[in-house]
Design a protein around this nucleic acid. Structure first.
Length: 726
DNA sequence: GACCTGCTGCGGCATG
């Protein structure tokens, strides 16, 4: 074995590296070479952004394919994004110029003729999305053997984007189905820049196979340069204040302008509106100063063409370019080296922070840097806990967790993914045409993702699908897809397991008022078109929300959905408020605001206990738990403490605090909450009798009895709540 | 008043 793996790579790869003037293989690349070339194990590459992960996966696997060409497709590359496939396609074509290994992109936008050419002579590397793979497995299962009968490797890019999601469960099912139909056991390679829980990731990657996983996770000692700034916008309740509000806003945008001026810069925001608004202001300021328009917006509602223009500008234009994006620019599409990364507010998760940070400092020895612009709006009548700078606190917590503890969020797999059970059952049956119930059951329940589904539950599930015409039973006792099922399965939307953006239309009688992304629960109020409405009913099928105009003062204003925050982050925020540390990366305004917040929290007793008296019969509950445990706490209050608390008085800002009205005092309330959550059989009590909430796509087709069970398993996070409150 | 991802097969018509 040569000690330098470079000399073991295929000649055209050596030539490619030489031409690129890369002096040595990166650590991850060298390690990956040894594992791929010298072992039979799966491989997990968990190394930082810009460490050459994709090359680390492709160099040795292509080398092996070059030595010993495969009779069918030899490497299957699976990506969560079409954009990533297109990006990789060009890079692979360049690498493979001198080789006789073809590369094929297969996704919704790929041409039919290219797909036909591959089918004529299956070979080389195929790049695909889970949705296109689903279509293949379901509509053309007979093609799997000729396409993949000699498959050697499966490379899964950005696996953290799959782990812990329904799409990831779908992918795991597909890998097993692919292995069965192709009669191969390809080695798997997973790639990610943001992982901490390597064991979970390794298990995820190897699920359903016998081989073990070797992990490559080189330490990168990249320098960090961080800054957090804070801006206060005064309230605009009275007219005189408006001027000072506008002045503060102007100062804020000028600061962003200056931070990105004459740089290649990316501005991350947490909402599409923020990106639009910020770029509008940047344009205005540039125009005032007669500077060029170098600004772009990049988010989910922007067309592919415009997004590609923004990406190309960042990558290729000489001179300054400024783009504002939501998380659309987090994943690994190549943008080249960016000089500045600005974050408006705080990301919701540490892992998001790491991805965004990785957009700068890609060159050797360059430091990664990010400036946080946190802002706060003062307003009349703000409740005590609302006067804490939560967003800035979350920014500090995320920074501290990452730089001190190297912590990022871990993933959790759903125990009862019933929507997926429907999806995979229908997909498998469609591929089979017809099947005896026992045959279908064994094909589905032997998939590792469904190991916790009991045969009894599956029988109930099948009977329900027969009753609702999703399935039909023939005279010979076999199952076929039923009339209702045909409509679902034959629609092109069937291939994805996540729901597209829905629009709920709001009706007051027969008058349509507007639309919302989500339906608030019945009896909750929300504002739209300048008025407050109370929800009287929701028609999930027609996507209608029925409302009446709310009368009098209503406490239960629905807050919409918020980003998910982990319990670890909330605990860190409390620690920051309790402590006295001065963080070096805080700019003067931010440092001052933190000091104020610490005093304010201490003086008002906000850090002392779970329940804080707020005067009269009002109380704050500040639990310092993440979003999921927070939602469970609300269930505890609604369903178990309703005799002490006025349920309609609950006002929440998830996951930071709740305000409630109660006749019993703070100490007793706290005691009741703590003793309630430890009661045996409490799980069942936290749901209304007729409640069967859906957690994902296709769950409307599941028998309510099973759906309730799934919610108890995956929707109620009592253990986390108990643990966090102790 | 979070954010994001993905999509077949075929009939019919126009064009070279």
């Amino acid at each position: 074995m040569s000690s330098n793996p470079f000399y073991r790579l295929a000649p055209f790869i050596q030539e490619f590296i030489y031409k690129k003037k890369w002096d040595v293989l990166r650590e991850a690349q060298a390690d990956a070479c040894h594992i791929i070339l010298d072992t039979n194990k799966h491989l997990l590459i968990a190394s930082g952004t810009a460490s050459g992960k994709t090359e680390a996966a492709f160099f040795p696997t292509i080398t092996m394919l070059d030595h010993n060409p495969s009779g069918t497709v030899g490497i299957l590359y699976i990506s969560p994004l079409k954009a990533l496939i297109n990006d990789q396609f060009h890079r692979l074509e360049e690498l493979l110029q001198e080789a006789s290994i073809p590369v094929w992109a297969w996704h919704g936008d790929a041409s039919q003729s290219a797909k036909q050419r591959l089918l004529k002579k299956p070979s080389g590397i195929l790049q695909i999305t889970p949705e296109s793979l689903e279509a293949m497995l379901m509509n053309r299962p007979e093609l799997i053997l000729p396409l993949f009968g000699d498959l050697r490797f499966i490379i899964i890019d950005e696996i953290h984007a799959f782990m812990g999601t329904d799409r990831g469960i779908q992918l795991q099912c597909q890998l097993v189905r692919l292995a069965r139909l192709s009669k191969t056991e390809p080695r798997r390679i997973g790639l990610s820049a943001t992982l901490r829980d390597y064991d979970y990731a390794a298990n995820w990657l190897a699920l359903g196979t016998a081989a073990s996983v070797q992990i490559v996770a080189p330490q990168t000692g990249r320098k960090l340069r961080l800054a957090v700034d804070h801006f206060m916008f005064p309230s605009v309740e009275i007219e005189e204040d408006e001027e000072s509000f506008l002045k503060a806003q102007e100062a804020y945008y000028k600061e962003i302008y200056n931070a990105t001026y004459r740089h290649k810069a990316l501005i991350f925001a947490n909402s599409r509106q923020d990106t639009e608004h910020t770029i509008m202001e940047m344009r205005r300021l540039a125009q005032e100063r007669q500077e060029a328009d170098i600004f772009y917006v990049h988010h989910g509602n922007i067309s592919t063409q415009l997004r590609e223009e923004a990406e190309a500008a960042l990558r290729e234009v000489q001179g300054p370019v400024v783009a504002a994006a939501t998380l659309t620019l987090e994943l690994g599409i190549d943008l080249g080296e960016l000089e500045r990364v600005v974050q408006l507010g705080a990301p919701y998760s540490c892992s998001s922070f790491v991805q965004r940070l990785g957009r700068s400092g890609r060159k050797k020895d360059a430091s990664s840097e990010m400036i946080f612009f946190c802002s706060e709006k003062e307003y009349e009548g703000a409740l005590l806990p609302e006067q804490l700078p939560w967003e800035m606190l979350r920014a500090i917590a995320i920074i501290e967790l990452y730089i001190r503890e190297k912590w990022v969020e871990s993933f959790k797999t759903r125990g009862m993914p019933l929507g997926l059970l429907y999806h995979q059952s229908m997909s498998l049956l469609k591929g089979m045409g017809e099947a005896k119930p026992a045959v279908l059951a064994s094909a589905v329940l032997s998939l590792p993702a469904f190991k916790d589904i009991q045969p009894d539950a599956y029988r109930l599930f099948l009977r329900h699908l027969i009753k609702t015409d999703h399935l039909e039973i023939t005279e010979t006792g076999t199952l076929i897809i039923g009339l209702t099922g045909e409509k679902i399965v034959n629609h092109f939307r069937f291939y994805s397991v996540f729901e597209g953006n829905e629009e709920f239309f709001v009706f007051n009688g027969s008058q349509q008022i507007g639309s919302l992304d989500h339906a608030p629960p019945v009896e909750n109020c929300f504002t739209l078109a300048g008025k407050i409405w109370e929800v009287t009913g929701v028609d999930d099928k027609r996507k209608h929300i029925y409302v009446v105009q709310a009368k009098g003062r209503k406490n239960t204003i629905w807050n919409g959905t918020q980003g998910h925050v982990d319990t670890h982050v909330m605990k860190k925020i409390r620690e920051i408020l309790t402590g006295s540390e001065a963080y070096v990366y805080l700019k003067p305004n931010a440092a001052k605001r933190l000091e104020q917040a610490r005093h304010f929290a201490a003086n008002n007793g906000l850090l002392e206990d779970l329940v804080v008296a707020a005067g009269g019969e009002q109380f704050y509950i500040i639990p310092w738990v993440g979003s999921q445990a927070f939602d469970t706490l609300i269930r505890v209050l609604r369903f178990e403490l309703y005799s002490d608390i006025e349920p309609r008085s609950i006002k929440e800002r998830s996951p930071y605090f709740l305000r409630i009205t109660s006749k019993i005092d703070a100490a007793e309330l706290k005691q009741k909450i703590l003793s309630t959550i430890r009661k045996p059989l409490i799980h069942e009590a936290l749901m209304a009798e007729d409640e069967a909430p859906r957690l994902g796509k296709y769950e409307e087709f599941i028998p309510p009895k099973l759906l309730r069970k799934a919610f108890l398993t995956d929707g109620i996070h009592l253990e986390e709540l108990i643990h966090a409150l102790q």
